[in-house]
């Protein structure tokens, strides 16, 4: 068999793998339907969509490249501040703002990746945590620029393409955020199903072997880290555009921990995990938080312990699967 044949076969195999499953069509149709089904919940749904994008950005790092980050909010917050400052000083055209925020956060990711991608898991944890803390301190101290603890207000948001106003209109904001989420999801899906995406998974599986078959491990990890940071930056910019104030909570540790939890609830490594996870998380928060707002933290902790104990890559789905398996075994017993 000639080399050309091998390439053609590989190409065909990749194409087959990246074809859309019918469940995916159903999923996105259902998502689109929420615009019409729950008109009173559009504020919550907007939150879910933004967190979904944020969790998706973390999934690119964690689920595909195996980089554990405890400070992903650094890029989210950076994107949000860049978006707000750019909109205030230059133009409030939403898509331009998103692009600028994404590029800025991506550059920050590119620079910081040189620090992150060294050493073991523990070092990475510490360094990502440290970067987020440094960003938090910076945002806190540079109050002449960021508004410090009071936050940054008065960010103008023009209509999209000059015709579709989104500020203070929950439904329009939701449609806008959803469209951004969908487009970026499709891009991410295409990336993880490309040879680049498969090489990332090879690195996650075994970095030594991956490099010995000729994958330049470090450069690919840097690339995906910057990509994840850029996605997080766009998510931050979206939140900045749909809420009146950009504040320090955009960068704090709670946000980094929450996004990790959402992703873990939904499961890593198949892109939908972040969306499912953030929806479950925020809906649960709304209900449990309404009953006992201050003890919500206890239930987050509980969920984390249970998921860490029982779940594998697929989050809640692996728990469901386990329970189902256990029941089946119970039935099979005479």
């Amino acid at each position: 068999m000639s080399t050309a044949d091998t390439f053609r076969q590989a190409d065909a195999a990749l194409k087959k793998k990246r074809a859309w499953h019918w469940l995916e069509y159903v999923f996105w149709l259902a998502v689109a339907a929420t615009v019409f089904l729950f008109p009173s919940q559009h504020t919550l749904l907007t939150q879910i969509a933004i967190w979904s994008l944020f969790a998706l950005s973390l999934d690119l790092l964690l689920g595909y490249a195996g980089i554990v980050s405890l400070g992903h909010a650094a890029y989210f917050g950076f994107g949000a501040y860049v978006a707000a400052l750019f909109a205030i000083n230059f133009t409030g055209e939403p898509l331009t703002v998103l692009l600028v925020a994404g590029i800025a956060a991506g550059l920050l990711g590119l620079v910081t990746s040189l620090l992150v991608l060294r050493g073991s898991d523990l070092t990475r944890l510490m360094v990502t945590l440290g970067i987020a803390l440094v960003m938090y301190e910076l945002a806190n101290q540079m109050s002449w620029l960021t508004g410090g603890a009071d936050g940054l207000t008065g960010m103008p948001v023009n209509p999209v393409f000059g015709v579709f106003p989104i500020s203070f209109r929950p439904t329009n904001s939701y449609i806008y955020v959803l469209c951004v989420l969908f487009v970026l999801f499709v891009v991410a899906r295409r990336i993880v199903h490309s040879p680049f995406g498969y090489s990332l998974r090879a690195i996650k599986g075994n970095p030594l072997r991956a490099s010995s078959i000729g994958i330049s491990t470090n450069r690919r990890l840097i690339a995906v880290y910057a990509l994840g940071a850029a996605y997080a930056g766009v998510a931050g910019a979206l939140l900045a555009q749909t809420t009146p104030v950009v504040s320090l909570t955009y960068i704090d540790f709670q946000r980094s921990a929450d996004v990790l939890l959402m992703l873990i609830i939904g499961g890593t490594g198949y892109l939908y995990g972040g969306i499912v996870g953030s929806a479950l998380f925020l809906i649960a928060q709304k209900f449990i938080g309404n009953v006992t707002p201050q003890y919500w933290e206890f239930w987050i902790g509980f969920a984390l312990v249970v998921i860490a104990l029982f779940a594998r890559d697929r989050g809640v789905f692996s728990i469901i699967e386990r329970v189902a398996n256990a029941l089946r075994k119970e039935k099979a017993k005479p």
Partner: peptide, 17 residues
Amino acid sequence: HLEQVLFTIGLVFMTSA
């Protein structure tokens, strides 16, 4: 390490609450 991190952060949240 990821699972250890999740588990122990969970414990922290629970004790704090």
